[in-house]
Computed example of a mutant assay.
Amino acid sequence: MNHTNAPPWSSLTAPTLAARRRRERLARGGTALSLCLALFGFLYTLDAITGTDTIVTATSSIARGATIRHDDVVMTKVPASSITGNALHTIGKAVGSVAQHPIEAGQPLYAGSIGSAPTVKAGDTVLDIAVANSINGLIPGDAVSLVSAVGCKPDAQETQDRENGDGNQAAACTLADHATIMATKAKQGGSGDERDQLTVALNPESAIRVMKAGESGPIVAVHR
């Protein structure tokens, strides 16, 4: 007998096997929905308690001394904490600066991670020089003193003695008290005469002394 006026839920309440299976499926669906709502509520509450922060992180490894480009960094949302609170919060503060230490991909950038790119001061000049010592520890922005290993003003007799292999070696002297490194170029091997290269900014008087001394013997860069 058909019950044309039966309520919509009659198919669930009927004392049949099909109705019981429908009730079980409905119960499982309700349980799953309840769990999803509970999880959403938990995550929402956790986010409200901990909060999030958006900081600058590296998209790839950045070598010490490298100039940071726009593609090297990205804004990343992370859980808020006292650690992330000290990180950089704008990409503009990182782009164009010089990495002060190696930075790994995904690592946050801090104020101590970067240094200002060096600029040439008014009245200074820029000079490319070959140095006798290793420049592995030097990066753009570092200040160095430039020292001649053969003396600044050798007299004629000292020059003759060096050419003949006689006499005492002239004392080293400082050619420039302060020079700012603009760029570095390490030697690539090969010829034993090849030396590391530095591009430095310094005052014209010191630049002239450095150029003259470079014709006489090796120059050493001393990190200040």
Rank of each mutant, 00 (worst) to 15 (best):
K121T: 10
R64P: 00
H70Q: 15
N5S: 11
E24Y: 03
G115E: 00
S60F: 08
H89K: 14
I83R: 13
T57K: 03
G51K: 03
R28H: 09
A99W: 00
P7H: 10
P102D: 03
S116A: 13
T4A: 15
C36G: 13
A48G: 06
A130L: 14
V120L: 08
V95W: 07
G51I: 06
D53K: 09
I103L: 02
T57W: 00
C36M: 14
S97T: 13
L37D: 00
T54P: 01
A122E: 14
G30M: 05
P108N: 01
H101F: 06
V120D: 11
Q100K: 09
V131K: 09
R69C: 11
R21G: 08
D53S: 12
R28M: 04
R69A: 15
G51V: 01
S61K: 09
Y110P: 00
A130M: 15
H89D: 08
P102R: 03
V74Y: 06
T76C: 12
E104S: 14
P7M: 13
A94G: 06
L43V: 10
A19D: 03
E104L: 14
G106A: 12
A132W: 09
A18R: 12
T45I: 05
K121S: 14
I103E: 00
R22G: 03
I91N: 10
K77S: 15
T31N: 02
T84I: 06
T31V: 09
T45L: 09
G123M: 13
T59R: 05
I91E: 14
I103N: 00
A48E: 06
G29C: 06
A27D: 01
A94S: 06
T31E: 04
M75F: 07
G115P: 02
I62W: 05
L39W: 06
V73P: 05
E104Y: 02
T57S: 01
R22D: 04
P118N: 06
F42H: 01
G96K: 06
S10D: 08
T84P: 01
R20I: 04
T125V: 15
V78F: 01
L17D: 14
A117L: 13
N133Q: 04
D124R: 11
I49E: 07
A87V: 10
R21L: 14
T4W: 10
G106D: 04
L88F: 01
V95H: 03
V78W: 04
K93I: 05
T16V: 03
T76Q: 09
G41W: 01
R22L: 12
L37W: 05
A14M: 08
Y110A: 08
A80M: 07
